[in-house]
Write a protein that binds this DNA or RNA. Structure first.
Length: 275
DNA sequence: CTTGTACCCTGACCGC
DNA sequence: TGCGGTCAGGGTACAA
């Protein structure tokens, strides 16, 4: 479920706890969350006794650099999450533990994934670099400019909402923050990407960055089932302008927020403020 | 090439 | 209480 701010929040929670630790043992309880190229057995063998020398994020992926030139790539997708501790987390809340990474200090990193759409992949540094080439720029990087967004939108007739969620165009924006950024920019999510003019692109660029930054400051958005590490919740849900507010009054103009479906996903917008 | 749809999976919720 | 339909913060395979 997490988008960029949620994944980055998890990264910040995990890094000081697991950086430098050695993975003493790996248990795979749900084999299908181990993603190619390795099967569960090779995955477990190759991670064992390796030190974690980096805890990074790229797009919506968490990356644990392990000594020896490998990268453990974590795709949380809709329901993946972590718990860390000496003892197992509350079994009433973490009911779908799919893997356990035992650390050399006795603590265990639990990967829980109710829907099992996410997973863990062990890649060589070289293969990760190939994967990374498919991803668009990080929207919060200082090098990310309105012209970058403009170029990527100019090349598509897709609705701008879909284009924002396309990880090859810009990395880390998902269903919540696409809707929120378009509201802030005053842009109708159904407009074809290439139809946006320069001022609209400039506004959208600022909106994407500001909404992600603010969400990050509030440790992300937590609904019933999304939590950061060990169940810590974010608070950005209180700041949402349109997402999950169908029928409620727009905070700017009181027009009821509308919900439509684009590419199979809900989009929320204010038909009056967004043109 | 681009774009839309089906699908992976479990659980919560709603109307009947 | 049960049952079917819908929906959920993602990404990919495949068809058109």
């Amino acid at each position: 479920m997490p988008e960029l701010p949620e994944v980055e929040t998890i990264r910040r929670d995990l890094e000081p706890e697991i950086f430098g630790r050695v993975i003493a043992k790996v248990d795979v309880l749900q084999p299908d969350i181990v993603l190619p190229p390795h099967g569960p057995d090779a995955f477990r063998r190759q991670l064992r006794d390796r030190r974690i020398v980096g805890v990074r994020r790229r797009a919506k992926y968490l990356l644990f650099d392990v000594e020896g030139g490998s990268v453990l790539q974590v795709q949380l997708r809709m329901s993946g999450r972590f718990a860390l501790g000496l003892e197992a987390p509350d079994p009433a809340e973490f009911r779908h533990i799919a893997a356990r990474l035992h650390l050399d200090d006795g603590r265990i990193l639990y990967y829980d994934d109710m829907r099992r759409l996410g997973g863990l992949r062990l890649l060589s540094l070289r293969d990760w670099k190939l994967e990374e080439k498919k991803l668009g720029p990080e929207p919060l990087a200082s090098s990310y400019r309105a012209t970058d967004l403009g170029r990527t939108l100019a090349s598509t007739r897709s609705p701008v909402k879909n284009a924002l969620m396309d990880q090859r165009r810009v990395a880390g924006v998902g269903n919540i923050y696409a809707s929120e950024a378009l509201f802030r920019a005053g842009v109708d999510p159904r407009r074809p990407g290439r139809d946006l003019n320069e001022p609209e692109i400039a506004r959208l660029h600022r909106s994407v960055r500001s909404v992600l930054r603010e969400a990050l400051r509030q440790a992300g958005t937590s609904f019933q089932n999304y939590r950061a590490v060990n169940g810590r919740s974010g608070s950005f849900q209180a700041s949402l302008s349109v997402y999950a507010r169908e029928g409620e009054p727009c905070r700017t103009c009181d027009t009821p927020v509308e919900r439509i479906v684009q590419a199979g996903r809900s989009t929320f917008f204010c038909p009056s403020c967004q043109r």
